[in-house]
Design a protein around this nucleic acid. Structure first.
Lengths: 183, 183
DNA sequence: CCCAGCATGTAAGAGGTTACATGATTGC
DNA sequence: GCAATCATGTAACCTCTTACATGCTGGG
């Protein structure tokens, strides 16, 4: 139930409407906690009722109205308590791993295209992260920025890990004699 | 909907009852696709109905009956088709990242204990993986074993990544002047 | 006698995804 | 006139988690 906390942090960083949050989630924090607008609106409503955030409707002169949310003191307190709780390790469900094991019961070479495609995707993300780093995290950083930068560094290292691992996987799979009866 | 495939692979590796699978998932494949026995029984029933696996009840002389499942040809075909489909990148929801960003609005040092605890957990997993590697993947390996080994290598690198990143995070957080008004 | 392990489930609920809905404005 | 963008939702569905249920056996 931690989309709540991600949204609260986002609102502390900058008061926003649900629509704003949905778009920002596509970029910054959404890389580590993705959410759709449907989810976001629902959680915002729940949090407003709980008193953790307060919404104020802004009349739109040109365009529709927007409801801008701000974190309340109660929300800040809640977040502060959550922050120090031990974080249970979230489980990774990675289909690629299952496929690698499945390859033992088929011609492993058939995996090559999807492995390669997957590697391209990670390389694309890595590039995107690098651009963000260049653009937003060069030179001296405030505390807030430094913390955000460290989060980004995890992303960089994680994508690199995938790229390296997939490259090895491709070469491993490519060198297996095809069509052998292994079971 | 990929617990189906994980179970199928497990059944190809060795025909088993739901109970067996639940216990094996705690160790091997469960590190990359965890599942509880409740889930497993339900999916097994669904897959049997679909004809991907076949169950045979073994009367237990001492102890309860067990229903042992085997992958069918249809199941094998299904798996083979799934294997070559492109794997969409699964999203990582990592609460620690949210907490790091939240720390900018609180005293960051309060994060230290949970970061350290978390690092211990990853170190423990790393050790466990290393033991598995020593025990099960030494010397010459069959195709099946080699593939499984590569999956394990991802786990090793992943845990190491976390450990390094958390260590850096701790030192970053520790060196921030406490109680400053950053917002 | 009680607890741990074997073996199989049902049921309720939380969280997330996908599809669908509405209504206004700006740009081509 | 039509598509895209702004802005906010509802509804159905799937997956996974957590709690509860049952009954039998072997060991201390």
């Amino acid at each position: 139930m931690s989309l709540d906390h991600a949204l609260l942090v986002s609102l502390l960083e900058k008061p926003s409407s649900g629509y704003d949050l949905a778009r920002r989630f596509d970029r910054s924090i959404g890389h580590f906690w993705p959410a759709t607008h449907q989810q976001i609106y629902k959680v915002l409503a729940r949090m407003e009722e709980a008193g953790w955030i307060a919404g104020q409707v802004e009349r739109g002169e040109s365009g529709p109205d927007r409801k801008v949310f701000t974190a309340t003191d109660a929300g800040r307190t809640m977040l502060s308590g959550w922050m120090v709780e031990p974080t249970e390790m979230e489980v990774a469900r990675t289909a690629v791993m299952v496929k690698l094991r499945a390859a033992a019961f088929d011609d492993p070479q058939r995996l090559l295209p999807s492995l390669h495609e997957r590697r391209d995707q990670h390389a694309g993300l890595l590039d995107a992260y690098r651009e963000i780093e260049q653009r937003d995290f060069a030179g001296e950083l405030s505390t807030q920025r430094a913390l955000q930068h460290h989060v980004l560094k995890f992303g960089l290292a994680y994508q690199q890990l995938w790229i390296d691992w997939l490259a090895e996987a491709e070469s491993l799979v490519a060198h297996i004699p095809p069509k052998q009866d292994n079971e």
